[in-house]
């Protein structure tokens, strides 16, 4: 179990750094389809911001914000977004994940619809990766509760 840090420098610096990490992660996700990066890397950077908060503010405070149940729901939601966009293209008469067919629903050209479709898929991937990474880290670092655990 990670306790809250007693050092005021560590706590303040972590709290100041987190918004910039989150903005950078959102930039990586949003520009993933025409520059390096994408859903997976952006999701991992988002999870890294949660881990930074957890090791500076204590695990209990972060668990109140993002409980294990919420993380599970978020990861399932990410997979649902990915598969839902694919199935939507299937229903509109194309192949699985054939984003060009989304132009029948959206008021844009097929080329733009492809760009928007892959953006939606990447948002789903980022959500799922962030939730699962947070869940793994929380599970690994919460071992003191059930088994006495030696330091």
């Amino acid at each position: 179990m990670i306790r809250e840090s007693q050092d005021v420098i560590v706590k303040t610096l972590a709290r100041l750094l987190v918004p910039f990490i989150v903005i950078y992660a959102l930039y990586v996700v949003m520009h993933g389809h025409h520059s390096p990066g994408g859903g997976f890397q952006g999701g991992v950077i988002l999870a890294a911001s949660f881990v930074l908060l957890a090791i500076s503010q204590g695990l209990d405070k972060i668990r109140q914000r993002l409980s294990e149940k919420t993380a599970g729901i978020l990861s399932s939601l990410g997979v649902l977004i990915y598969a839902g966009i694919g199935l939507l293209c299937l229903l509109l008469g194309g192949k699985y994940l054939d984003y060009g067919k989304l132009s029948k629903l959206l008021p844009v050209e097929p080329a733009q619809a492809r760009s928007l479709g892959i953006l939606g898929v990447e948002i789903g991937v980022a959500l799922a990766v962030m939730a699962v990474m947070c869940l793994i880290v929380f599970t690994i670092f919460s071992f003191d509760e059930d088994s006495g655990g030696d330091e």
């Binding site: 390096p36 990066g37 991992v44 990474m133 793994i136 880290v137 690994i140």
Partner: peptide, 26 residues
């Protein structure tokens, strides 16, 4: 290979190190 480098930096250097520290602590 900038995309691979990005993945290496974010996954292996940040989250992987944290998970391994957890394993050592345990």
């Amino acid at each position: 290979a900038v995309d691979v480098a990005f993945t290496e930096a974010s996954v292996s250097a940040s989250i992987g190190t944290v998970l391994l520290i957890g394993a050592v602590y345990k």
